[in-house]
Design a protein around this nucleic acid. Sequence first.
DNA 1: GTGAAAAATGTAAGCGCTTACATTTGCCAT
DNA 2: ATGGCAAATGTAAGCGCTTACATTTTTCAC
Lengths: 339, 339
Amino acid sequence: MEEFSKSPESSVPTLADVAARAGVSTATVSRCLNTPDRVTEKTLKTVMDAVNHLGYAPNYSARALAAGRTNMIGAIIPTMENAIFARGIQAFQEELQKNGCTLLVASSSYRQDLEEEQIRTLTARGADALLLIGYQRDPQIYEFLKKRKIPAVLTWASEPSQDYLSVGFDNRKAMKALATDVIGKGHRTIGCISADTATNDRARERVEGIWAAMRDAGLDPDTLQVVETAYSIENGEAAFQQLMSGANSPTAVMCGNDVLAVGALRAAADLGLKVPGDVAITGFDDIELAFVAPVPLTTVHVPHRRMGQLAARALIEALHGRSPESVQLPTEVRHRDTL
Amino acid sequence: MEEFSKSPESSVPTLADVAARAGVSTATVSRCLNTPDRVTEKTLKTVMDAVNHLGYAPNYSARALAAGRTNMIGAIIPTMENAIFARGIQAFQEELQKNGCTLLVASSSYRQDLEEEQIRTLTARGADALLLIGYQRDPQIYEFLKKRKIPAVLTWASEPSQDYLSVGFDNRKAMKALATDVIGKGHRTIGCISADTATNDRARERVEGIWAAMRDAGLDPDTLQVVETAYSIENGEAAFQQLMSGANSPTAVMCGNDVLAVGALRAAADLGLKVPGDVAITGFDDIELAFVAPVPLTTVHVPHRRMGQLAARALIEALHGRSPESVQLPTEVRHRDTL
DNA sequence: GTGAAAAATGTAAGCGCTTACATTTGCCAT
DNA sequence: ATGGCAAATGTAAGCGCTTACATTTTTCAC
């Protein structure tokens, strides 16, 4: 019969408990756990037996305090409800997990002030490194990160100056390629439904991509009819209606992402417009929604999972003191039935 | 001209630095930060000025070690790529953020062994509380959590025995309601595409819901043709084909979630089957995919955001030493065009 | 077998914070 | 004014771990 009491041994075991049971010092136990090759096989076994017997698990707060590292990596994204972020972050997390790191998540709701606050919070929480979306933010933040020596990887975009580590893709180039195809189909009056270009660098670059294609084709970029709205199917519908009710309604509407495009598609159906016969519609991202849409969507495919995975690897490299290279992933126009 | 060196003042400021600058003890600074009402207004101002001047931010690892709390809450979900989890977790995170807590995320890929490992990892990392999906797991885990005094909330289901805190919904009842409608439409030969019922309690309860409805209607539950497969559009397509190529092909196929249902819908189109004319199809969850599907999907609406939010509140209550009640959220059949 | 170098282990000093307890200060009834 | 009490502040002991440095043990060339 064993006695179970509230005495020390019934509470959470510590390193010292393991050391006592194994008859070694706490330093040795710590070594067994962190650098097993610096310890005799025999000692290792004794200690691991004690660990298992006691059900010992290290206290990461203590470890973090002593070692100065937490093995936690933070990600600050606009929202997980957008499938592209959910997918990228899932891959990011899987890769971190493989490397013994844990993911801390915060969301900014596409607001720069909130993002900044989150950066400070996750930093204070001890995040060893950060994944950030896009590159447009107060220079002070970059200063702050640099001063704190916290590696950060910028994703979902390719930072133009290459001053920072980034694992992403060229939004402008991607959208330009798609716009070139749109123009190639003979469209001259083009509309665009975009997220807020003032605060969202990805959205802005996509619009700039359309302008660039227009310029190349001898079209006046100023004729591009842009409506800015937050990402949602409903907003896509409304924006499309607005675009089509104007005097010179577009024959092609390029949307900033697939969600808006699906909204446009629904609005077109409501207006009795055939796609692509009466009006062409394009998306961006190539999420599931794009190919199960009423009319499968012509869009730009972005390797979100791959991006998340490579971002994780880059950060882990950086944490190991190496200097990872930025990577620009290729995107690809996916021709389906809306253009 | 100021000198910038590697000397103490250029590194990350600590509580002691603030205390020195404000001319008070570290205890007082700590009080200003944590219990400002236990401090003179004058002292508070002096200290906060020092905090701001130094750009001080507390080291949470140290705080966690000293206080025994981390203010981090962990969530272990099968995958963020499933929109229902992304959405629920987003709401969960927003609510945590409002309460000064940070979210730690891990994913189990629907594997029980991995989930268990993650529970131990997040616990070791100091998660003060945990959000878990479903209720079916090794009793030892519940023991472990109880011993460690870590509150956990079970979500996306309603734990039948009510022994544990849960914020979810009744999968069985929800699916039974839908199945009753299916039967009400005259369907007698029913198929079902489900996730693995052995390891996924939500999936199992949904199938049981169909059985219950059949029984109530005088149908033999054993005639339900179940195909189990992992959640994906492609798997939904394959499973549907399998179901329809059998001897006694169903006139209605009830799917375990919307993703499978969209796959079924596509397969039906490929087979030249009209929905719901030739075959009825139903989903579960009511994600975006459901209403933008080629044929808008009849499905069960689940209040995922609300669930995430309430789960967060319950955990925060528990952390405050109160005893939150389990809540069972209502679900609702959404009739659209596939039944 | 011997001694020097290498390997294994032990000792103990923090890491930055919270908090129980001790001390000082301020306030008020007398 | 003064004693007594409450409020404010200070003192200092950890929280559980890592790691530089000190000590002991092993290894191995001679």
